[in-house]
Design a protein around this nucleic acid. Sequence first.
DNA 1: GCGACAG
DNA 2: ATCTTGTCGC
Length: 233
Amino acid sequence: MPCLPGGLPFPETAAAARLLVPELAARVETADRIGAVRVIGGADASSTRFDPTRTVHAAIVALGWPALSRLGEAGATTRGGLPYVPGLLGFREVPALAAAWARLDPRPDLLLVDGHGMAHPKGFGIACLLGLVLDVPSIGVAKSVLVGEVEGALPDAPGALAPLVWKGRRIGVALRTRRGANPVYVSIGHRVSEATALDWVERCLRGRRLPEPVRAAHDAAGALRLSGLTALG
DNA sequence: GCGACAG
DNA sequence: ATCTTGTCGC
């Protein structure tokens, strides 16, 4: 039950969410406005497929930079929110993520979010919404495309890049993080430029396909779902 | 109208 | 997102 910037109530229906997107998207900052990054975070959520109760288990991990050592972790569970609707993922997961954030210590200076940022039909993916709600610099890291297409070739070599374009606009970038693996799609979340976003994603890879903060958050969210089913949430 | 569709 | 062990390749 977080609050949207401007004191707006969090939408409880997909229709309400859609109406809010334009004004929220207008608040997204695409230029760098980040302080010193001493703690970098990863955010992700886990849920059970076909769950009529719409339970969402979210986790945010706090890792120290540059060691990427685990400094903190927090989880939270919500029920009865929005179902998954392509384009509105943030409205489903952010309430749980915001609750996790409230319990987290230390608080990350930068957040890597599992899912798109501006590489979204309305330029407002989950990384944008979370960054806006928490007022924290954020980056979108997705494992597949929502809209747009990768322009040109993407060599099968670590570090290879190719723009993700949609309707003639560059909305993000495909990054080959590992040889032989599908690329990840990086886009602006909030208060972080695309170039800076790419830098941080690459610096957090540690030789794997997904940046460590996202990997850690994914694991934490999954563990919370498995154990949280019988314990407190 | 049909197909696509983050997680 | 999740169901799931072993297996192929670098």
